[in-house]
Design a binder for these strands. Structure first.
Length: 433
DNA sequence: ATTCATGATTCGAC
DNA sequence: GTCGAATCATGAAT
């Protein structure tokens, strides 16, 4: 500390001497000394600076006493004037360094995102808009509402934490700013501090705190993103369709194997039946077609299964229709479902049934043959697994729709065109509606 | 942990 | 816009 005091003494002497020469500054006449006593003045200034430099090493009471002593020191006004002048000369550089910082684009992005997610800004149900949008994109399955509310709950939690932290930071910022301002005001008694300087200091503090706030915003955004991707990203939360839905889709697919391209209406109907979205139906058929085509052998068993199932369904429906027609006036079996998408009575299964006995699927004839047809079908399935040409080329569920190129024959042609025996009232085409 | 099944996405062709 | 094809990512079975 002796060295420091010596240095300070010499600096003090030089600077003051420099000022008195260059700046033409006139120090007030020191009390109890005459103006010509240069050594005495230097001694005084050095003494003050020494006290200032060592003040931090002392206890609070000691420092307070020293402070008071300094404030009352006879050289204090002189030192104050010198500091004023130094400040005046360096003020330009300070002003130059101070610039209006433009709004940080990253901070703006974060703010916008938090606002969009419903974390920042006014309470609006925990970002329900974003949740709803994402939920719609993920395809309104049955458990959506549960996940949706779960998402909202988590988002509310994040929102609460964010606001609590933000409040804490703001409070800390205000406290610190007040503290610093008080300190500066206190210091302004011993050194010149302009309001502008205080303002600048406050600005620095605010910037520091806003950078901390930015970190908070950043981590909040990350949390929201993770939450979003976990709960709402459709790809991430892939759920298998219900068994019932898969069965409905498979029934349609295998009963329209010659042209497995459901129309928009059919897709909507299937979507409704399966409690999935139309786009999910489209996806399913897209996947099914390509996977079926890629590995027909693998799907044969499945095809047979659905063939039998559809056959039984059709037989039951036909029997019911016959019973109905016997009880009432004769009618076509499809009259009850014509114009609507009816799975058991629709599709290629009709063709198979017709060709099995060589009968056309019309009128009371069907009723007489229903049981035998079902039996025959079961027999054929068990004997041939549904894949031979014994039925004149129209085998049960052979990949008859596929052409040599691996594509479905004339995908735009409804299967009614293929079957000349089919009546005009039949409903099995994708485009029949 | 690995493998398979499956729903979703992406990309290029039409 | 739809489609096929390839791919990704996840769930379920082993």
């Amino acid at each position: 500390m002796d060295d420091q005091a010596r240095i300070m003494q010499s600096i003090g002497g030089v600077s003051l001497a420099g000022h008195s020469v260059q700046g033409g500054m006139t120090l007030p006449p020191p009390h109890g000394h005459d103006g010509t006593d240069g050594d005495g003045r230097k001694q005084d200034i050095g003494d003050i600076l020494h006290q200032i430099m060592t003040i931090t090493d002392q206890s609070l009471d000691e420092a307070q006493a020293k402070k008071h002593g300094l404030n009352c020191h006879r050289m204090k006004p002189a030192l104050f004037s010198v500091l004023c002048e130094i400040k005046e000369k360096t003020g330009l550089s300070i002003r130059g360094a101070q610039e209006e910082d433009p709004p940080d684009p990253q901070l703006m992005r974060l703010d916008n995102m938090l606002l969009a997610e419903g974390v920042a800004g006014p309470e609006k149900g925990g970002g329900s808009a974003a949740a709803a949008a994402a939920a719609a994109a993920s395809g309104g399955a049955g458990d959506n509402s549960i996940e949706h509310s779960d998402y909202r709950a988590k988002l509310t939690q994040i929102r609460q934490i964010y606001h609590t932290e933000l409040e804490k930071y703001e409070q800390a910022c205000n406290e610190f700013t007040t503290h610093v301002m008080n300190l500066l005001r206190e210091q302004s008694r011993t050194r010149p501090i302009s309001p502008k300087e205080i303002e600048r200091m406050v600005g620095i503090i605010h910037r520091k705190f806003s950078s901390i706030q930015m970190q908070l915003k950043q981590s909040t955004c990350e949390a929201v993103m993770i939450l979003r991707s976990r709960f709402l990203d459709a790809r991430r939360k892939r759920r298998n369709f219900s068994k019932q839905a898969t069965e409905i889709l498979n029934e349609y697919f295998y009963s329209h194997l010659s042209n497995p391209y459901p129309s928009e209406e059919a897709k909507e109907e299937l979507a409704k039946k399966c409690s999935i979205t139309v786009s999910q139906v489209s996806n399913w058929f897209g996947n099914k077609r390509i996977r079926y085509k890629k590995n027909i052998g693998k799907f044969q068993e499945e095809a047979n299964l659905y063939a039998a199932k559809t056959a039984v369904n059709a037989a039951h429906a036909a029997a019911a229709a016959v019973q109905n027609s016997q009880a009432n006036s004769p009618n076509t079996p499809n009259s009850g479902s014509s114009g609507s998408f009816n799975l058991p009575n629709s599709g290629d299964m009709f063709l198979s049934m017709q060709s099995l006995n060589g009968d056309s699927y019309q009128g009371a004839q069907v009723g007489a043959n229903v049981q035998s047809q079902v039996d025959t079908l079961r027999h054929v399935i068990s004997q041939t697994a549904g894949y031979n040409d014994a039925l004149g080329g129209r085998t049960m569920y052979s990949p008859h729709g596929l052409n040599a190129n691996g594509g479905w024959q004339d995908a735009t042609t409804p299967s009614s065109v293929i079957s000349p025996t089919e009546g005009p009232g039949s409903v099995h085409s994708d485009t029949s509606n």
